[in-house]
Computed example of a mutant assay.
Amino acid sequence: MPTFEPWDIVKVPFPYTDRPVRQRRPALVIAAGDLLTHHNLIWVLMITSAENRGWPTDVVVSDLAVAGLPAPSVVRTAKVAVIDCRDAERLGTLSNADRAAVAAHLASHLAATMHAPPGA
């Protein structure tokens, strides 16, 4: 079974939200650990071409060589997927310089959705 760590960049069959297909594309691992060990799953963020229309929380991949990416790219922090690790292939890793921005956007996304229900 392959092993992956957070910040690894992998190639996976990423699902689309607007059509019932998957396309093999790069993605950033944001959770592995117990998910990987017990369920063979990883949580990933979409990586897309920097030429595409940008989203407010995209993070530019500053070191393409370390990431293993052939063209200017961004991490789309708003698009997360759960992938079977057996379908993933490691390409590289996200540079330390980019990790803080991705982590900040993820924390913001989660804080906006993970609040306690009224009366709790």
Rank of each mutant, 00 (worst) to 15 (best):
M1L: 04
P2L: 00
T3L: 09
F4K: 15
F4S: 11
E5I: 00
P6Y: 08
P6S: 00
D8S: 08
I9A: 08
V10D: 13
K11M: 13
V12M: 15
F14A: 00
Y16I: 11
Y16G: 09
D18L: 13
R19D: 01
P20N: 04
Q23G: 09
R25P: 12
R25M: 15
R25W: 07
P26M: 07
P26F: 03
A27T: 14
V29N: 03
V29K: 10
I30N: 06
I30Y: 10
I30K: 09
G33T: 05
G33A: 14
D34F: 05
N40P: 04
N40D: 12
V44H: 06
L45K: 11
L45D: 00
I47K: 05
S49H: 00
A50R: 00
E51Y: 07
N52W: 00
R53W: 14
G54Y: 10
P56F: 04
P56H: 06
T57R: 11
D58E: 12
D58N: 14
D58R: 15
V60E: 14
D63W: 02
A65T: 00
V66I: 02
A67K: 02
G68V: 14
G68T: 13
L69E: 07
L69M: 03
A71C: 07
V74R: 12
V75C: 06
V75F: 04
R76K: 01
R76P: 07
R76N: 00
T77G: 06
T77S: 05
K79Y: 14
K79V: 15
V82S: 11
I83V: 11
I83K: 07
D84H: 12
D84Q: 10
E89R: 11
R90E: 07
G92W: 03
T93W: 00
L94A: 01
L94M: 07
S95R: 05
S95Q: 01
S95N: 05
A97D: 15
A97E: 14
D98Y: 08
R99E: 08
R99H: 13
A100H: 10
A100V: 04
A100L: 11
H105P: 10
H105M: 11
H105G: 11
L106V: 03
H109T: 14
H109F: 15
L110Y: 05
A111D: 15
M114H: 09
M114D: 11
H115G: 11
H115M: 13
A116K: 04
A116S: 05
